[in-house]
């Protein structure tokens, strides 16, 4: 009986969003009287940082600082339609909708500024700090604060925009079955190193090295935060999470998160993250969806590492000590 070491590798592609009846998200943008911009969405922030990313996207498109944007994730009864915040689709779908809405609002904003400055709207640009300038003659300028006041109280214009992003449903071709389930894929590769105790069946993940290709990282620190958490969740899928022991009989299964445990602070694998940015063609500023993808490659990598360590294939998750010991027994019997 001994502790055996093994190393495994796995690579994955992961689609952004889904392909059921079509995958739409809408956004609305309007300015307040003082030139802040309100984005209304039905997508939600549950800690992944959607509000921050949507604020950055809206600010970049309109040409104002991020802190001038307010995100209202509203509620699904009253907000613009969104299919939901799942399938790693938030940044990609809602981000594209926000860009479209913000472009329309920016156009109205420039038209009002043009009237105030008595120039052509196409001759105007934003400085990203809250001002609109005449191209080539920046001394001629107006603040967005004043433009909003003028629109609201003098010109009777609504500085607002509507955005809609739809990935239409893709049907399989009759002859070949070929279809396009997604327009955008993120990619990842993980190398995992494990120790397996062939007496107790226990697996310890010593280290994981992950490379993630996630399109453009719109907020690199938040991307890293998702990836570090996701890598840990992947190890948890591989080794821990189950409603077992006797599923579908629920008698002895976990009933809540206190019993449905993940690796604790004392069970962490040494984790390395490398991010590759290959901007996607149809993503907002090149982004893809890194959300769920990042918790996937660790699972086959750990399974492969276990095989490398003890020479048996575990093909049911999670890889519990019981499954390892049964597989070793079957192997010895053959």
């Amino acid at each position: 009986m001994a502790i055996r070491r093994g190393r495994g590798v796995a690579a994955i592609n992961y689609p952004t969003g889904m392909n059921l009846g079509g995958d739409p998200t809408q956004a609305l943008v309007h300015s307040t009287p003082t030139g802040n911009f309100m984005v209304t969405l039905s997508s939600v922030d549950l800690g992944q940082g959607l509000k921050q990313i949507m604020a950055q996207i809206c600010a970049e498109t309109i040409g104002v600082p991020t802190d001038r944007v307010i995100i209202d994730t509203a509620d699904t009864d009253t907000g613009p339609h969104c299919m939901g915040t799942f399938a790693s689709r938030g940044t990609h779908r809602a981000g594209n909708a926000v860009i479209q809405a913000a472009k329309e609002a920016r156009q109205v904003m420039l038209e009002v500024a043009a009237e105030e400055l008595e120039v052509n709207a196409s001759d105007l640009e934003t400085d990203g700090e809250g001002n609109i300038l005449v191209k080539g003659a920046p001394q001629k300028s107006i603040s967005i604060f004043d433009v909003a006041l003028s629109a609201h109280f003098k010109r009777g214009r609504s500085i607002s925009g509507r955005g809609m992003f739809l990935i239409p449903r893709s049907y399989p071709e009759k002859e070949t079955g070929a279809m396009k389930p997604s327009t955008c894929y993120a990619h990842a590769c993980t190398v995992a190193e494990v120790e397996v105790d062939n007496e107790t069946g226990e697996v310890t993940v010593l280290m994981v090295k992950n490379i993630f290709e996630i399109g453009r990282a719109l907020n690199p620190k938040m991307v890293e935060q998702q990836l570090v958490g996701g890598s840990w969740m992947g190890i948890s899928h591989a080794l821990y999470e189950t409603t077992e022991p006797y599923y579908p009989n629920r008698d002895h299964g976990g009933t809540d998160f206190n019993q449905y445990l993940m690796p604790g602070p004392g069970d962490l694998a040494q984790t390395e993250i490398i991010v590759l940015e290959r901007p996607s063609a149809d993503g907002p500023y090149g982004a893809k969806g890194p959300g769920e993808m990042c918790a996937n490659p660790q699972i086959p990598a750990v399974a492969n590492a276990v095989f490398d360590a003890i020479g048996v294939r575990i093909d049911t998750l999670p890889i519990t000590p019981e499954r390892i010991l049964r597989a070793l027994k079957a192997q010895a019997a053959n």
Binding site: Q225, G229, S231, W232, P265
Partner: peptide
């Protein structure tokens, strides 16, 4: 630090941060 935090569950961060 690990010992001090071991009574606290986090489902998001992976604890390392």
């Amino acid at each position: 630090v690990v010992e001090a935090l071991s009574g606290n569950i986090c489902r998001c961060t992976g604890y390392e941060p």
